[in-house]
Simulated assay, not measured.
Amino acid sequence: MDSVQVRLMREDDLASAERASAMTFFEAERSTRRVSDPEVEPRSAVASKQWIDRMRFFLGVDPGGCWVAVREDAGAGEVVGFAISQNRRGLWFLATYGVLPGHRAQGIGRRLMDAALHHADGRPGIFSSSVHPGATRRYRLAGFSLHPQMRMVGTVDRHTLPTVDGLREGRPDDFEWMDRLDQDLRVAGHGPDHEYMLGTMRLVVSRDRAKPGYVYIDDRGRASLLAAAHPGIAQNLLWEALASSRGRTLVNCVTTPNDWAIDVGLAARLDIGQEGYIAVRGMPVPAPYLASGHFL
Results as ranks from 00 to 15, higher is better:
residue 21 S to R: 09
residue 211 K to A: 04
residue 167 L to C: 09
residue 233 I to N: 00
residue 225 L to M: 12
residue 150 M to G: 04
residue 196 Y to G: 06
residue 178 M to V: 06
residue 262 I to Y: 01
residue 138 R to K: 04
residue 190 H to S: 10
residue 103 H to G: 14
residue 153 V to T: 13
residue 204 V to G: 07
residue 80 V to R: 00
residue 109 G to V: 12
residue 93 F to V: 07
residue 284 P to A: 14
residue 166 G to H: 03
residue 199 G to V: 05
residue 44 S to R: 11
residue 201 M to S: 12
residue 104 R to T: 12
residue 7 R to D: 00
residue 269 R to F: 03
residue 12 D to F: 06
residue 188 A to D: 15
residue 1 M to N: 05
residue 242 L to C: 05
residue 204 V to M: 09
residue 160 T to V: 02
residue 272 I to F: 00
residue 40 V to P: 04
residue 49 K to N: 02
residue 260 W to Y: 13
residue 275 E to Y: 14
residue 30 R to Q: 12
residue 10 R to G: 15
residue 238 L to Y: 05
residue 24 T to L: 12
residue 276 G to W: 04
residue 148 P to W: 11
residue 292 S to V: 00
residue 285 V to D: 08
residue 205 V to M: 06
residue 19 R to P: 03
residue 184 D to H: 09
residue 166 G to D: 03
residue 240 E to Y: 10
residue 78 E to P: 03
residue 103 H to I: 09
residue 217 I to S: 00
residue 140 R to L: 07
residue 79 V to P: 02
residue 226 L to H: 04
residue 246 R to V: 10
residue 93 F to H: 15
residue 47 A to H: 02
residue 78 E to R: 15
residue 194 H to R: 12
residue 10 R to N: 07
residue 154 G to Q: 10
residue 87 N to D: 15
residue 26 F to N: 11
residue 216 Y to A: 14
residue 13 D to R: 07
residue 29 E to T: 11
residue 267 A to I: 02
residue 263 D to V: 05
residue 31 S to P: 05
residue 214 Y to W: 01
residue 213 G to R: 01
residue 33 R to H: 07
residue 170 G to I: 13
residue 58 F to P: 01
residue 278 I to H: 02
residue 223 A to E: 01
residue 44 S to N: 08
residue 234 A to I: 08
residue 241 A to Q: 08
residue 250 L to I: 01
residue 221 G to E: 07
residue 164 V to K: 14
residue 285 V to Q: 11
residue 210 A to E: 08
residue 232 G to E: 15
residue 33 R to L: 04
residue 227 A to E: 12
residue 237 L to C: 13
residue 292 S to L: 03
residue 150 M to F: 11
residue 245 S to W: 02
residue 133 P to N: 09
residue 237 L to K: 06
residue 121 D to E: 13
residue 259 D to T: 10
residue 178 M to A: 14
residue 283 M to Y: 06
residue 147 H to M: 15
residue 229 A to K: 13
residue 218 D to I: 10
residue 94 L to A: 02
residue 9 M to F: 03
residue 198 L to C: 11
residue 120 A to D: 04
residue 41 E to H: 11
residue 176 E to D: 06
residue 121 D to G: 13
residue 173 D to C: 12
residue 195 E to F: 00
residue 76 A to I: 00
residue 188 A to R: 09
residue 234 A to N: 07
residue 178 M to Y: 13
residue 54 R to F: 03
residue 215 V to M: 07
residue 122 G to W: 08
residue 3 S to Q: 14
residue 193 D to P: 05
residue 109 G to L: 09
residue 169 E to S: 14
residue 62 D to H: 01
residue 275 E to L: 14
residue 179 D to K: 05
residue 162 P to D: 13
residue 267 A to D: 05
residue 115 A to F: 06
residue 178 M to F: 15
residue 28 A to D: 08
residue 171 R to I: 09
residue 115 A to L: 07
residue 248 R to A: 08
residue 127 F to S: 02
residue 232 G to D: 15
residue 167 L to G: 02
residue 281 R to D: 05
residue 5 Q to C: 13
residue 159 H to P: 10
residue 55 M to T: 10
residue 47 A to Q: 05
residue 84 I to R: 00
residue 125 G to W: 01
residue 165 D to G: 14
residue 241 A to T: 09
residue 86 Q to N: 02
